[in-house]
């Protein structure tokens, strides 16, 4: 990996840190999901290259903070129970606030970044 690749990775990592919680809460707004599924959806759908070592501690922290709740479910098609996460009312409010802030920020920032090309 070249030094420019490493710089690009570091930049992306810092950007991801700021949006990971928003993406996660947004995902759980759809329906309750378990860790592996959350990881795959965020990687494929949101383009966030995060690891298990980042996701599970975050889920743990959000659970403790009351933004999400968890329960173990044993589904018929699974060989073992899975821990599902769902948004709480507090999490929903936090999601709404973060989503509003993000959309406002990106709208303004995109317009600013594209000002010279228009």
């Amino acid at each position: 990996m070249t030094s420019s690749d490493k710089s690009s990775d570091t930049r992306r990592t810092q950007l991801y840190k700021g949006v990971l919680e928003l993406a996660l809460l947004s995902l759980l707004d759809e329906e309750p999901q378990y860790g592996l599924r959350i990881l795959d959806r965020l990687r494929e759908g949101a383009g966030l290259d995060l690891s298990e070592g980042t996701l599970y501690p975050l889920l743990h922290r959000l659970n403790k903070a009351g933004l999400i709740l968890s329960e173990w479910r044993h589904e018929a098609d699974a060989s073992h129970p899975r821990k599902y996460y769902a948004l709480t009312a507090i999490g929903q409010a936090e999601l709404n606030a973060q989503r509003h802030d993000w959309l406002t920020l990106t709208q303004n920032l995109n317009a600013f970044l594209l000002r010279r090309s228009s």
């Binding site: 378990y34 860790g35 592996l36 298990e52 599970y56 173990w72 073992h80 129970p81």
Partner: peptide
């Protein structure tokens, strides 16, 4: 136990 079991479930799903 919760943390370990969750990691186990994830790993078993991946291997499966």
């Amino acid at each position: 136990r919760d943390i370990v079991n969750e990691a186990r479930a994830h790993l078993e799903d991946r291997v499966a």
